[in-house]
Structures are given as structure tokens and as C-alpha cells.
């Protein structure tokens, strides 16, 4: 089954860490990427800060084009920072891989993928 490992955290905290702690966090990501690459196709995405985002909101009238609002989807304490997506044998294996990038500044959500197309695909 395919799983997404979604990363949530407070934007900007990573940048406040001293160099060696940043390196620690990055080492986890490098290790995970190497491991995933050995196993086959995967996707890994790091998003730019939420302040770069614009949001499309449905217009009040259904025949109007959506409204484009400057700013992220929601002003939350923690935001969606990035994700990995790959096929794993089961939830345990996905969790085991998520642990590789666990750090005190991030919350990780492991969530099964219902459908994926593009660089990785759930079809066949």
C-alpha cells in the first residue's frame, strides 16, 4: 500500500536551530531519501513557507470563478511543511520509515494513499 508521511511544524523554527542541530535533522531526511531510492519510486516534497501561498476559495455564487486570496489556507500554529509518498509493505513499515525523520520540531502524520498518479502511481 502507498502511504504519505506528512510533516507538520511551525514554519521558521528549523532556521532558528544551531547549525549542528539543523545538520541532524537533514541527516535524517538524507537517510530516508537514500533508503526510499533503493526501494523504488517515491516522491519527496519540501514546501516553501506558508507566507508564499495564495488560496483559491469558491466564490459565493457557483457560476463565478474562485476567489484568489493572498495567504495560506489557514493561519495555524503548525503548518503543512512537506511530505513523502512511497509504497510500503504495511503500516508498521511506513511508521518505521517515518521514525527516521522524527525530530523535536516536527509532527509526522502517516496516512494511507487512496490514489496516486504521476511520478508514482497506485495503478498496477
Amino acid at each position: 500500500m502507498m502511504y504519505a508521511i506528512n510533516i507538520y511544524g511551525e514554519a521558521g523554527v528549523f532556521e532558528q536551530l544551531p547549525q549542528d542541530r539543523q545538520a541532524e535533522v537533514l541527516a535524517g531526511h538524507t537517510a530516508l531519501q537514500t533508503r526510499l531510492a533503493e526501494r523504488g519510486a517515491f516522491v519527496s516534497v519540501k514546501l516553501m513557507p506558508p507566507s508564499t501561498a495564495v488560496t483559491l476559495t469558491p466564490a459565493p455564487a457557483s457560476d463565478q470563478p474562485p476567489l484568489v486570496v493572498d495567504g495560506p489556507f489557514a493561519e495555524t500554529k503548525e503548518s503543512f511543511l512537506g511530505f513523502y509518498a512511497a509504497a510500503f509493505r504495511d503500516l508498521d513499515e511506513a511508521l518505521e520509515h517515518a521514525r527516521m525523520i522524527s525530530s523535536p520540531i516536527a509532527r509526522l502524520e502517516v496516512r494511507p494513499i487512496a490514489w496516486a498518479g504521476g511520478a508514482i502511481s497506485t495503478d498496477g
Binding site: E10, Q16, L17, P18, S103, I105
Partner: peptide, 11 residues
């Protein structure tokens, strides 16, 4: 622990 928390405080 201090490093991780200090980054939070700074933020």
C-alpha cells in the same frame, strides 16, 4: 533539549 527549545522560544 535546550537547543530545540531555544529555537522554539526564538520563534
Amino acid at each position: 533539549t535546550c537547543d530545540w527549545l531555544a529555537a522554539r522560544f526564538a520563534q
